[in-house]
Design a protein around this nucleic acid. Structure first.
Length: 474
RNA sequence: GGUGGGUUGGCCGAGAGGCGAGGCAACGGACUGCAAAUCCGUGUACACGGGUUCAAAUCCCGUACCCACCUCCA
């Protein structure tokens, strides 16, 4: 059984055949660090993190590149608004993004190149394109360099659009373009922009265009040809179309597979920065744990549009707690649950089929139900294997509750808190046990209600009561 | 105008010709002092109209509505 992936270029699911056996090169367009990351941004990161984890699980040696675009129009504009140097703003937003990734257990890529660190590579690529007759320096003296779309007949191949059908942008500024659809490879420095936002080049000082960055960085770290290129659906055109055109025009085969994750919307609208920051990651994490948000994102297929709602997030959190609670109870019975478990066949088949995470999650729930049955039946050997399997499947999805990454923040402090709560709750539970022993159920229930109102769930087991935090709380 | 995607039960969300994914909620039963947790059970869902087929949520034709992209939004 091989992994099958949906390829946007061919519009279908295909067997994944890497260029080099046993290896997989993956490039994903990271963010332009212009503002605080929101739920939509991390969906893309989580989706491709799952892909990367699954490829590794299936034995591939993965080189995963996710870039950071740290110079562009919007960064310059936002920084000016906030009265900061553009690089200070970019650095601050990059840190913000790193925090969001960490909070959701998005593993760091193999390399995380910055656009500003690869200007020479971009200049080299642009020079090559000019030499091959696919790019030209603007004749208006602006210092801009454009890609000549008419010189590349395959332009539009990724999204199957014909150049002549494309609508010219309303605000299209022809400047020194030969064709309004030509796109900028290099942007000449403007007096209105900070001098620090420009680099020397054969065409004068300036800064790189957006599309060229990814071609240059993918080429540098993955080579002329590589396996998978990913990003959000919105990037198909123009960004990926342009990347493909400029890379191939420069003589590089580029990506074999193109993968795109769908949007997450709110109130039927695209989650854009203008909708405010209620869905900014730090805000969501005030109410929900990162692992719960990740579960919510993973439970939907990456190519399905998701309509975000806190109600749906609540449900997802409840569903996740069911799994988590099973692991806690299993651990009480069999001791520590090993990390060497095996995913069940349904899970593997689901994941191999274009990362079918919804079916994979359903498979986990099936194993959990079986495990809960064993928990009542008392076959601890079977239970141990069962729980280990659940843990292994969760781990592949980046959702293993025992993974130390979830114990972020105050670490030792948190453990102390848990111990403190445990001491207090245990005392209350003893009082409740005493009350029950004397059949004073009113008193016993009052104690239980008191604990529950603090957001703590009591589970009575044959070995006595245990406590855990209720779903939806941090 | 061009390109692509969508419409599934109270809700979220899979599936892609024939056994009702899974979760949340609800109801019944078991367990419990009562609960909770857990287990067992309970649903005549596939936008609409035609068609193909022994068989359609799934294929074909048409209609409606929604969404995304068309030069720098994941």
């Amino acid at each position: 059984m091989t992994i099958r992936l949906y390829d946007t270029a061919t519009r279908g699911v295909r067997d994944f055949v890497p260029l080099q056996e046993g290896k997989a090169g993956l490039y994903v367009c990271g963010l332009t660090v212009q503002s605080e990351p929101h739920v939509g941004h991390v969906r893309s990161a989580v989706n491709f993190d799952v892909l990367q984890r699954w490829l590794r699980h299936r034995g591939y040696d993965v080189t995963f590149i996710r870039n950071v675009t740290d110079i562009d129009d919007k960064i310059l504009a936002k920084a000016a608004e906030r009265g900061l140097p553009w690089y200070a703003h970019a650095a601050r937003m990059t840190r913000e993004l790193d925090r969001a990734y960490a909070a959701l257990n998005v593993a760091p890529p193999t390399y995380e190149p910055l656009a500003t660190g690869h200007v020479p590579e971009m200049v080299e690529l642009i020079t090559e394109l000019i030499e091959r007759g696919h790019a030209y320096a603007a004749e208006d003296g602006s210092g801009d360099v454009y890609f000549d779309v008419q010189s590349w007949p395959q332009y539009g191949e990724l999204t199957r659009q014909r150049i002549d059908d494309m609508e010219a942008a309303e605000d299209a500024d022809p400047r020194g373009k030969r064709d309004p659809r030509d796109f900028a490879l290099w942007k000449g420095h403007k007096e209105s922009e900070p001098a620090t936002a420009s680099w020397p080049s054969p065409w004068g000082r300036g800064r790189p265009g957006w599309h060229i960055e990814c071609s240059a960085m993918a080429g540098k770290y993955l080579g002329s040809a590589f396996d998978i290129h990913g990003g959000g659906v919105d990037l198909r055109f123009p960004h990926h179309e342009n990347e493909l055109a400029q890379s191939r025009a420069a003589g590089h085969p580029f990506a074999s597979y193109w993968m795109h994750n769908a949007w997450i919307t709110t109130a039927g609208e695209k989650m854009s920065k203008s909708l405010g920051n209620s869905l900014a990651i730090p805000a969501v994490l005030e109410t929900y744990r990162g692992i719960e948000l990740r579960y919510y994102l993973v439970a939907a297929h990456y190519r399905s549009h998701v309509e975000f709602s806190f109600e749906a997030l609540d449900e997802a959190a409840a569903g996740f707690r069911r799994i988590e609670h099973f692991l806690e109870r299993a651990a009480d019975v069999v001791g520590e649950i090993g990390s060497a478990g095996m995913p069940c066949a349904d899970f593997v088949n689901a994941m191999d089929d274009d990362l079918g995470t919804p079916a994979a999650v359903a498979a986990i729930h099936e194993v959990v139900r079986e495990g809960n049955r064993l928990l009542a039946g008392g076959d601890s050997a079977a239970l141990r294997g069962n729980a280990a399997s659940v843990r292994a499947m969760l781990a592949v999805l980046g959702l293993d509750p025992a993974d130390p990454v979830w114990q972020t923040g105050a670490s030792g402090h948190e453990e102390q808190l848990t111990a403190a709560v445990d001491a207090l709750v245990s005392e209350l539970l003893e009082q409740r046990a005493a009350a029950r022993a004397t059949k004073d159920f009113a008193a016993a229930d009052a104690i239980r209600d008191r604990i529950k109102s603090a957001g703590i769930l009591i589970t009575d087991t044959p070995d006595g009561p245990t406590w855990s935090l209720e779903a939806g709380t941090k």
